[in-house]
Simulated scan of single mutants.
Amino acid sequence: MAEDAIELWETTESARGEEGMPPPFWAFAWAGGVGVARYVLDHPELVAGRTVLDLAAGSGLVGIAAALRGARSVRAAEIDAYAVAAIEVNAAANGVEVTAAVEDLLDGDGAPAEVVLAGDVFYERTMAARFLPFLQRARARGAVVIVGDPGRAYLPRERFRPLAAYEVPVIADLEDAALKTTTVWELAPGPSGS
């Protein structure tokens, strides 16, 4: 994990010879992901023996937690090749297997995953508009859907039920505080969740 967001971003742009690259989201443990990972570590029954999808996986933190707690298999989906490389390195460092791939799954329903985990995906309106229908389709086909969120503006709280809250240390360059209260939510079944 990186300690200096700006320096890493500049180094990545320099190495690629490109300006205006997206931030290295994969290089940090975002508060929502930390919350979901903590919840999974504290509640292994959520993932033990099940197939898990870590959506918008970033560094792989959530998927690694699921693998450590006995998931039958873990698939990590990301749209950034650097993230997939980071997931592979981080999974190996933790002695677990996580299958990572560059793929945008948001037009589907996450099948065959029995558990769909996502940390910090409601950070902007356009992304929320894509993530929510995906998560609803996953829930409608029977998957358990868990999301971590540190109070982002676009989480439709009325569709979720809170499971736990954690105080998560965050990187000053990326957030507006040293600690963020991060809530772990489950997408509700039925009319409000489908």
Rank of each mutant, 00 (worst) to 15 (best):
A27V: 02
F28Q: 00
W30I: 02
G32T: 02
V34C: 11
G35S: 10
V36M: 09
A37H: 01
V40I: 15
L41F: 05
P44R: 04
A48Q: 14
R50K: 15
L53D: 05
A56R: 03
A57I: 01
L61I: 13
A65P: 00
A66N: 04
L68F: 02
R69L: 05
G70C: 02
G70A: 04
V74N: 01
A76V: 08
A77L: 12
A77N: 10
A83Y: 04
I87N: 04
I87A: 04
E88H: 11
A93M: 12
N94S: 12
G95L: 09
E97N: 09
V98I: 07
V98D: 08
A100P: 08
V102P: 10
E103V: 15
D104F: 11
D104E: 09
L106M: 12
L106I: 05
L106W: 05
D107F: 12
D107M: 12
E114T: 09
V115D: 02
L117Q: 05
L117I: 03
V121C: 14
V121R: 06
V121I: 13
F122S: 06
E124V: 13
M127Y: 13
A129E: 15
L132F: 15
P133L: 11
A138S: 14
R139E: 08
A143Q: 06
V144P: 00
V147L: 05
G148A: 03
D149S: 10
D149C: 11
P150I: 05
R152Y: 07
R152M: 08
L155F: 09
P156D: 07
